Amino acid sequence: MRQLAPGRRLLVGLAGASAVLLGTLGAHALRNVLDAAHHELWHTAVEYHFWHALALVAAVACGQGKASRVAVWAFVVGIVLFSGSLYGLALGAPRWLGLVTPFGGVAFISGWIALGLSLRTRYQA
Rank of each mutant, 00 (worst) to 15 (best):
G105S: 04
W73D: 08
A125W: 08
G111L: 03
Q3S: 14
A5E: 15
A37K: 14
A59Y: 12
W73R: 07
V106D: 00
F103E: 00
L99C: 09
H39N: 05
L11A: 04
A45Y: 07
W51T: 10
A58D: 08
V12P: 13
F103M: 01
N32S: 02
G7C: 14
H38F: 04
G13H: 13
A53Y: 01
V57A: 09
S18I: 04
L91S: 11
E40D: 13
F50D: 01
G88S: 10
A59T: 00
G111T: 07
W51Q: 06
L99F: 15
A67T: 03
L99R: 12
A125H: 07
G78H: 11
G7S: 12
G105I: 05
L14V: 10
A67G: 00
R8I: 12
E40R: 09
G7K: 14
G16F: 08
L89C: 06
V72G: 07
L11I: 13
H28N: 11
L10C: 14
G23D: 03
T44E: 13
V72A: 07
W96Q: 03
Y87A: 09
L22Y: 10
W112Y: 07
A61F: 10
W96A: 06
L11H: 02
L99E: 02
V72L: 12
R120L: 13
L97C: 11
T101H: 01
Y123S: 04
D35Y: 11
R9C: 12
G63V: 08
G104F: 00
A19P: 06
E47K: 09
F50K: 05
V57L: 15
L115M: 00
H38N: 01
W51G: 08
S118T: 09
F108V: 04
H49Q: 01
A107C: 11
Q64E: 05
R69C: 15
I79W: 13
L86I: 06
Q64N: 13
V72C: 09
L117H: 09
V60Q: 04
G26H: 03
F82N: 00
S18V: 07
L22K: 11
S85Y: 09
R122K: 12
Q64P: 04
V20F: 13
A17R: 02
G13P: 08
G16Q: 04
A55I: 02
F82C: 01
V100P: 14
Y87T: 09
A19F: 13
V57S: 15
V80G: 02
A5H: 15
T44W: 10
